[in-house]
Simulated assay, not measured.
Amino acid sequence: MRATGVGSMPGEDLRGIVRFVVDELSLPFLPELPARGDGAGMVGRAVALLDGLGADLQPAGWRLTDRPGLDQRRARSLLSYDLDVLEEETQGFEGDLKIQVTGPWTLVAAMERPRGDRVLSDHGARREVAQSLASGVAAHVDEVRRRVPGASLIVQVDEPGLRAVLDGQIPTASGIGRHRRVHDPDADAALREVTAAVRGAGARPVVHMCAPGVPVTLLSGAGFEAISFGLALVPRADYDAYAAVLEAGVDLWPGATADDPSALRRTVDTFFSGLGFGEDAWVHRTVLTPACGLADRDPADARAILRRGADATRL
């Protein structure tokens, strides 16, 4: 079992955090530091990767535009700086390295069309965003591999908004109504755009969903090789679905937080035991993460949480 972070971290000291995750974690990752501004947050990072689509920041959030706006150019510049730091701090590194990107459904639920309302409301626009994102992610994988040639890359696709999209719970611009629910075949098609692009670039696609009701069967079918989730959010009634995807070859990455490594390890062991699997069936395939991103934590506390996770995997 290995340990990693979800992605977001507190503060603005990227270099210090990169050094920490490379030194302390068996699966290091490129951190996201949203305290540096909108271009450094989850959606801003994805906007920076869009290929052939312009965007800019409006009072209501990111909006598609005819050409790249100042905020999108800043987001791209910030990402380039982050990769410079990653390259400098991983000289001689060999092994798995994780990078994160916002998934297509969370992205279209967060972004607006040029004339307002969410991209989610326009079938053509959301398909175009998914394709643009997939192309941008593939190029991003190539760039990271060029900078860290010894790394085997894992791309974590963050989809915290997917459940709300599937259930028709994304509010319209007025806030009065809700967008129509997206059916599983449509959701699958957009997710497959991204997983196919990740695989085509030679990386492993993993999905993270820090929300209740993770549609594990849908995500498994869309081509993800592992599913990262909040362990405390999994009801007993969903155990059969998790057991089925694990048996089918999809790895499970539980997210949990505890006061000491021993308690954390017992929590993970109890979950897999509840699925009906002995340690030999899962321990070598599992990555332990915090319960969710750590951007809202005190920097020292965030590092302590990651360190406890790393300690738990060594027990």
Rank of each mutant, 00 (worst) to 15 (best):
A130P: 00
E143S: 07
G136D: 08
A139G: 05
D142Y: 03
E128Q: 13
L133D: 08
V108C: 06
S80D: 12
D96A: 15
V137H: 03
D84A: 12
D96C: 10
E94G: 09
L120W: 14
K98W: 12
S121R: 13
R74P: 00
Q100R: 05
S135F: 02
Q131T: 03
V137W: 11
R115V: 11
H140T: 01
Q131K: 06
D117I: 10
L79H: 12
R76Y: 07
D96G: 12
A109V: 10
L120A: 13
L78V: 05
E128V: 01
W105G: 04
R74C: 04
G136Y: 10
D117M: 13
S132F: 06
V101E: 10
D96V: 14
E88H: 15
P114C: 13
E128L: 07
G95E: 15
L78G: 04
L79W: 12
A134W: 06
T106N: 07
T90Y: 07
A75R: 01
T90D: 09
G103R: 00
G136N: 04
A138E: 06
A110V: 12
S121P: 00
H140M: 02
M111W: 12
T106W: 05
A130L: 03
A110C: 13
A139D: 12
R127I: 01
G116I: 08
L120Y: 13
R145L: 02
E87A: 15
D82I: 03
F93R: 02
M111D: 07
G95I: 15
S121M: 10
S80T: 13
